[in-house]
Design a protein around this nucleic acid. Structure first.
Lengths: 218, 218
DNA sequence: ACCTGAACACCGTTCAAGT
DNA sequence: ACCTGAACACCGTTCAAGT
C-alpha cells in the first residue's frame, strides 16, 4: 500500500532549527519536544541527533535563528534615530516570536553576542556624535536590556490581580492595575525609549560643555 | 530499627514554596522537580499535591515568594532617590536569586502585580514632584522593566564569543566582546539607571517650563 | 485530613540494528 | 551516512489505598 512519502530534502541543522521555531511559535515552548519537532518533519525523534547535539543545543540554535533576523543598527543617520530604529526593530522581532522570549532568559547568552555584533555599526554613529567609546557601548547595552525587559513583560501578559484588588479591599491597587491595563504598550515602549535617549542626550551635552574649553579671553 | 524521623511540623503551602525556592537557589531550575522538592522535605512527591495545585502553581508561588521580599519604594525622600533606591533593591533581590529570574519571563505575571503594589508609594513621590499620574506610572514601569531586563542579561551570563571573534577573523568584534566583558556590571547598571533618571528629570523640567504661565504683565 | 505506593503517559537520550 | 525501533531513566500527575 502507500508508503510514507519520502522526504524530498534531507534533514539539516538549519531545517531542524526552523522546524523547532515553527513549533514554538505555533504551539508554545512546552510543546517543543524532540518528538514533536521530529514529527513535524516526518521523521523519528532520534534522527534529530544526527544534526543537533541535544535539546539544549536545539534551543540555543532557535535563539540564534531568531536573532539572525535582527537588522543591524544603521550608521547612516544620527545617533538618536539609529538607536531608536534599532530598538523598535528589536522589539518588533521579539513580538513576532513571543514564545521565544523566555529562552533569552535561560539560554547561555549566544544571543547577546549576536546583538552585540548587530549593534556595532550603531556604535560608530554614537562615537561620531561625541560619545566616548565606553559610553557608546554602555548606551547600546542599556537600550538592549531595556528592550528585552520590555519584551519580557509584554510576552508574559498582563499582571494577574492580587487578592487585595480582586476583593475590593484596596481600591487604590485596583485603580492602579486598571491604569496599567489601559495604557497602550506601544506608547509605553516609546515613553521609556525616549526617556533613555533624552538621558543620553543630556549626558552628551554635559560632557561636551565640560570638554569644550571656554573661549579664551582675547 | 530506626524509623524515618517524624516531621516535626506539618507541610504547608508556605513550607513547600520555601523548599522549592531553596532547591532552585542551590541546584538550579531544572533540579526543581516535584520529587526533589518533596525529598528535601522528607516526604513523597504526591504529598505536595495536598498543598499546591501542581508544578505550574509551584513555580508561580516561588515567584510570588521572591517578590514578597521586595521592599516598597520609600515615599520619604525625593522622587529621584526613591526610584533609584527601589531599582537597586530590586536588582539586588534578583541577584540573590539568579536562577529564579528566568521564571519572571515565562510565568503569568503574578510578579508584576506585586511589583506594582510595591511601587505604589513611589508613585506618590513622583506625583508630588510634579509628574502627572500617567507619566508617574510610566516612569515606574520603565524603571522596572529596565531592572528586569538587566537582571536577565546578568543571570544568563556573559555572551559566548561567536565564531567570527573566536577564530580572529574579525578583530573588531573580538575587541568589542572584550570591552563588554571588562566593564563592571555595577557601573553598567548605574549608568543605565542614571540615564533613565536624567531623562525623567529632563521631561519634568520641560513640562514645568511649559505649564508655568509666563508672569502676567503688570 | 494527610500521606503513600503503584501505575500511566510522557520526556530526553543511548544503543544496536537496519538501509 | 543517515535513519530507526526498542529500551532506560526520568518526569508530572492520577488514583485507590492506607493511617
Amino acid at each position: 500500500m502507500s508508503t510514507r512519502p519520502p522526504r524530498r530534502t534531507p534533514l539539516s541543522r538549519a531545517s531542524v532549527l526552523e522546524a523547532a521555531l515553527r513549533v514554538i511559535d505555533e504551539r508554545g515552548l512546552d510543546a517543543c519536544t524532540m518528538r514533536a519537532v521530529a514529527a513535524s518533519l516526518g521523521v523519528e525523534a532520534m534522527s534529530l541527533y544526527h544534526h543537533i547535539e541535544g535539546k539544549d543545543a536545539l534551543l540555543d540554535g532557535v535563539v540564534e535563528l531568531v536573532l539572525a533576523e535582527l537588522e543591524p543598527a544603521s550608521d547612516g543617520s544620527g545617533w538618536r534615530e539609529g538607536l531608536a530604529g534599532f530598538a523598535h526593530r528589536y522589539r518588533d522581532l521579539l513580538r513576532r516570536h513571543p514564545n521565544v522570549v523566555p529562552l533569552l532568559a535561560s539560554r547561555p547568552a549566544v544571543g547577546y553576542a549576536a546583538a552585540a555584533r548587530v549593534a556595532a555599526p550603531g556604535l560608530a554613529s554614537l562615537e561620531a556624535a561625541g560619545f566616548d567609546r565606553r559610553t557608546a557601548i554602555r548606551a547600546a547595552r542599556t537600550i538592549t536590556r531595556y528592550v528585552v525587559g520590555f519584551a519580557l513583560a509584554e510576552s508574559a501578559g498582563p499582571p494577574a490581580a492580587p487578592p487585595e484588588a480582586r476583593d475590593g479591599r484596596d481600591p487604590a491597587i485596583a485603580a492602579l492595575l486598571e491604569a496599567l491595563a489601559s495604557d497602550s504598550p506601544d506608547e509605553l515602549f516609546a515613553f521609556g525609549l525616549d526617556t533613555l535617549l533624552d538621558g543620553l542626550a543630556a549626558r552628551l551635552s554635559r560632557s561636551q560643555g565640560a570638554s569644550a574649553p571656554p573661549a579664551p579671553p582675547a
